[in-house]
Design a protein around this nucleic acid. Sequence first.
DNA 1: CCAGGCCCTTGGAGCGCTCCAATCAACGGG
DNA 2: CCCGTTGATTGGAGCGCTCCAAGGGCCTGG
Lengths: 332, 332
Amino acid sequence: MSPPTMEDVARAAGVSRALVSLVMRQAPNVSDERRARVIAAAEELGYRPNAVARSLASRRTHTIGVLLNDLHNPFFADSADGIIEEASSAGYQVLMATGTHVNQSHTAAIESFLNARVDGIILVGPRFTPEQISDMASHVPVLTLGSSSDGHGVDSVKNDEYRGACLAVEHLAGLGHTRITHVSGGRGAGADSRRQGYARAMADLGLADHVDVVVGDFTEESGAEAADELLKRAELPTAVFSANDIQAAGLMGRLAEAGIGVPEMVSVVGYDDTTFAGLYQLSLTTIHQPVAEMGRQSVRSLLDRMVGGRTEPRKLVIEPSLVVRRSTAPPR
Amino acid sequence: MSPPTMEDVARAAGVSRALVSLVMRQAPNVSDERRARVIAAAEELGYRPNAVARSLASRRTHTIGVLLNDLHNPFFADSADGIIEEASSAGYQVLMATGTHVNQSHTAAIESFLNARVDGIILVGPRFTPEQISDMASHVPVLTLGSSSDGHGVDSVKNDEYRGACLAVEHLAGLGHTRITHVSGGRGAGADSRRQGYARAMADLGLADHVDVVVGDFTEESGAEAADELLKRAELPTAVFSANDIQAAGLMGRLAEAGIGVPEMVSVVGYDDTTFAGLYQLSLTTIHQPVAEMGRQSVRSLLDRMVGGRTEPRKLVIEPSLVVRRSTAPPR
DNA sequence: CCAGGCCCTTGGAGCGCTCCAATCAACGGG
DNA sequence: CCCGTTGATTGGAGCGCTCCAAGGGCCTGG
């Protein structure tokens, strides 16, 4: 009653088990006649190759482990989408785990990836120490996506956060803004570069005196809190560059509640160009990065290492772009 | 140079391989002294149990396959989150696949789940024929989440769409609306029940004459198109019950572009209470279903079948609830 | 007519683990 | 003092596949 094995197919087709194996793996040197007989027998028996046994024998699982920070942020959902799509079209499966904020669950997830003998690991967002990263990289190819914890012999795909931040600031300055505040992403992935890009761009534009950073993180609440903070001040900035879209949404919401119009009173720029930035009601000017495409690139890069034999790490930096919507306007 | 195996640990600890196996599986009948020795040896060698070999030998992979329709819709992201969380806390891994609209890729994903010998499958959204479902259910426990394609000996977890639609209509009617249009979800999961719930509630409230359904699907564009359709009419309805939040957002956006205020001119109710329904700028009145919790329930239900030995299918129906925000108001 | 190749096919030895039946030591009770 | 019990430990037989070395036809050139 147990499902048919290769042995059963071989018997039914009157050939050896090895031959069935060759047919299943689409090996070239098999006569058409036998191939047909094997395929017919397999079909008849409802044979289904056992990927577990195959993995054990071949020492390759055709599986990549993906660790995401937070599926609720569309950013992660989009990258997951790109990853899954590319992986499955390359014949790979995706083992997915999410670290629920706690770093401990991250390491547990990695542990189970390694036990499962995944062929590669993609880290989307989570912060690990360099030791942790290189430790796992010693077992299996690792790629970080969008995160900044790289540089330890692992591949990485990210957008040029620095450049993106510059685009945002230049856009605002171009509109005539000078008092441009940045709400940071705190210790989140990419937050540092965005903050530095902001500072640098401000300096380059001669606005060094106006540099003003409110510490936040990548959540909606943090945006609302930042708004509260700003509202307490004697004078609002005329523009805000938010560390990401969700935070920007939280910020704009709170400002609206307080009767502060966007962009009439304050212009707002986000980052990521996630789904809802384009919603008519938000219409958020933001920095676009092709997240799904980056997910696909990640898989390709990893495959390149896993089967292509590349060994030196490859860092891919994607150029972000500015998307202007209605949340920005010249200052009054 | 290959990673240490149980054999190596056994040798190092001076015990048999079987004993190491017992220790690794936390079996009870092992003397403390030997257990300690084995653990020490394993640690020393950096031993990592090979889950592939374990799966082959034990015929259980501790993996569940999850097939999602569309990660972009927060609904799916949320359920994925609940599923992953519960699965990993039960010691299970999640193999994730997304069907990219095309049904063919759905079946390919299922195929690879079965080849991987997953212990169970959760289908979130995709529509399969009853034959397909019962076919896969004959191999492995299957559960459908939020989908309507059940009833074939498989478990299911869903909210009471019917009831949810009633809640929406009753809310609008309670505000004084009579001309309530429904933009449907077309052939998507749950769309039928929502439409029927709408029709039934309208009838119960004596509004049968006003039943009016615009065919759409579960996307933002479809909402915009529905708005266009409505705008062509001589007279707008005073309220719209949208098949889901994203569609509602698209609809509201297009209405706003046309200068039609929500809720001043038209009230709008969505469905799902996805993340952005709560954004201040949308503030969409909608029907809430505890999606993440439903994801967790799905896993529990599946585990119950996989290890608990339950065989009769279990259908879990969750009561949805109404969340009133600012997109609804009495008609003018 | 035979050696030398070239294809196709096959048996067998694992891959690293689980699980079962068998073994062994220790312990009381009759 | 022997034997049944109980609990800890072990060898061995798989799990279903891949991979490799070797075998068997058959064709070709000398």
